[in-house]
């Protein structure tokens, strides 16, 4: 039924949008020559290094590529668990 509505009233789920989204993702990895597995390893290494200096929430830790036109960036979001003690720094 929903499918029928979607057909009649124009679809947001047009398969070309799915194709474009999948392509964008796969190309980001291709262009960086970095597989999803390698990205996972990179993330784990980052956690290890940063943990030596800060108490971070490794569950909330996110690393991914972001693409804006021609420029590409590696973006890391690193939540810190508790306030850093000034005296130790």
């Amino acid at each position: 039924m929903f499918d029928l509505f979607a057909r009649v009233f124009g679809r947001d789920d047009a398969s070309k949008e799915v194709a474009k989204e999948r392509l964008r993702l796969v190309l980001v990895h291709d262009r960086a020559s970095l597989s999803p597995q390698a990205l996972e390893n990179l993330k784990n290494d980052l956690v290890k290094v940063i943990s030596q200096y800060l108490d971070i929430d490794d569950q909330g830790f996110r690393v991914d590529f972001s693409r804006d036109e021609d420029a590409m960036a590696l973006v890391a979001n690193i939540p810190i668990r508790k306030k850093v003690n000034r005296n130790t720094l």
Binding site: A14, K16, K20
Partner: peptide, 18 residues
Amino acid sequence: MVKKGDMMDINDMIEILA
């Protein structure tokens, strides 16, 4: 198919491939 949104159009491809 392009019209139905079931095939990427020229602009989609140029944009992706630059």
